[in-house]
């Protein structure tokens, strides 16, 4: 078994199993925890929890006007790499085929050239995010190992993917194996680190919205 066989076989399979295990474990543990009974009386004329939740999710897509200037970079850059990652992961034919092979689902792809360009922008954007984190005293102060490690496992597939298509540094099959291994690391880390926000971000914002609406905030 060569490195590519290992990556496409045991490594990615075990990683997907860990991902699914971890995600369901955390989600079930959270969702079945049960909410404390809220004895307050909901304000009159406020939307129900569902709509309030949706409204909060929508509202938080843009920064609060008070912080619009201060947060301009984080806001803009954040959108760039999130959308970039989504385009690269879900717009590239080999990636879609990977998902199709697992789930049977398929959709049209973007030209590969577009993917390479978006991939490069995404990488730059992620690097900018790290620079911001290190140079901003407050952000650096509140950063933990989790933040840095999460950054590494996020940018690794992008860099290795670009390296593979560009044949930078090694033979294609070796680079591809490294690409897949870097994805395996990402999948394994996802449920246990800050990347889990991918699953919780809308849940927690919606929950906050419902909670605040009840109070009429």
């Amino acid at each position: 078994m060569d490195l590519l066989d290992f990556a496409r076989g045991p490594a990615i399979n075990v990683a997907m199993a860990v991902l699914v295990f971890g995600v369901l474990w955390r989600l079930f543990a959270l969702l079945f925890l049960g909410k404390p009974v809220d004895r307050t009386i909901p304000r009159l004329g406020t939307p129900g929890p569902f709509w309030a939740g949706l409204r909060e999710i929508g509202r938080r897509m843009l920064p609060h006007p008070t912080f619009a200037t201060a947060e301009r970079f984080a806001f803009f850059n954040g959108w760039v790499f999130h959308v970039g990652l989504a385009i690269v992961v879900f717009g590239f034919r080999p990636h879609i085929l990977f998902i199709k092979n697992l789930t049977g689902l398929s959709w049209p792809a973007l030209p590969s050239g577009v993917i390479y360009a978006v991939g490069a922008i995404t990488a730059l954007s992620l690097i900018a995010a790290l620079v911001k984190r290190i140079t901003s005293p407050v952000q650096r102060f509140i950063s933990t190992f989790d933040d840095y490690f999460t950054w590494v496992v996020t940018i690794a597939p992008v860099l290795t993917g670009l390296a593979a298509v560009g044949h930078v540094g090694a033979r294609y099959e070796t680079l591809l194996a490294i690409h897949i291994l870097s994805i395996a690391v990402l999948l394994i880390w996802l449920p246990f680190g800050k990347l889990f926000h991918a699953f919780l971000v809308f849940l927690s914002r919606g929950q906050t919205g419902a909670f605040l609406a009840r109070r009429g905030v």
Partner: peptide, 26 residues
């Protein structure tokens, strides 16, 4: 670009185990 191996079984098993572990934790 497809995984090679018993993916469905492995991931299915992990899903059940994850759900059980989550329910137990809750």
């Amino acid at each position: 670009s497809g995984s090679v191996g018993p993916t469905a079984k492995l991931v299915g098993g992990a899903a059940i185990a994850g759900a059980v572990a989550g329910l137990a934790a809750a």
